[in-house]
């Protein structure tokens, strides 16, 4: 058993990545950052984080491709909860299809959700007291 839960933030916008990281500090969580989908995939497979925060549009590998690779990789990959954070305007139908196909996946729009709500959601998923 790991002492601390690991949260992987995969986000190409440095400021968003760092703000999320700072927001999660002091929550008895180990935060790891990835700058693109490829880094996110490598870190996911080596660290097996307890939750992944995932941007969709990123260089080198986009978020959905990274998520599909994780889901198809192993038993851990099939179960790890993922929060998609995006500003992409996609149709509800497309979004619902993606989420059903890649469950357990949650979908947050960055402009809709505040940092506090995202942190609450992470804690709820991880059940960190």
């Amino acid at each position: 058993m790991k002492d601390k839960k690991i949260v992987l933030i995969t986000e190409d916008e440095k400021v968003l990545r760092e703000t999320l990281h700072s927001g999660l500090e002091g929550e008895n969580i180990t935060v790891v950052e990835a700058r693109n989908g490829q880094e996110g995939l490598d870190l996911s497979l080596s660290l097996h984080p307890d939750i992944i925060l995932l941007d969709l549009i990123m260089p080198k590998m986009d978020g959905l491709t990274m998520l599909e690779k994780i889901r198809n990789h192993d038993a851990w990959g099939q179960k790890v909860p993922v929060i998609l954070l995006t500003n992409l305007t996609s149709s509800d139908e497309q979004r619902n299809n993606d989420m059903a196909r890649l469950t357990p996946t949650y979908y947050f729009e960055k402009t809709e959700m505040g940092i506090e709500q995202i942190i609450e959601k992470i804690k709820e998923i991880l059940k960190v007291q």
Binding site: V15, T19, G23, L88, T89, T111, E116
Partner: peptide, 27 residues
């Protein structure tokens, strides 16, 4: 429209998140 809205929303969310973070007295 899709490119413009994505590109406008990204800086907006950065400003939103940082402002919230700065205003949060608990941190």
């Amino acid at each position: 429209i899709s490119i413009a809205s994505h590109n406008l929303k990204t800086p907006l969310s950065i400003i939103k998140w940082i402002s919230e973070f700065l205003l949060d007295k608990k941190i």
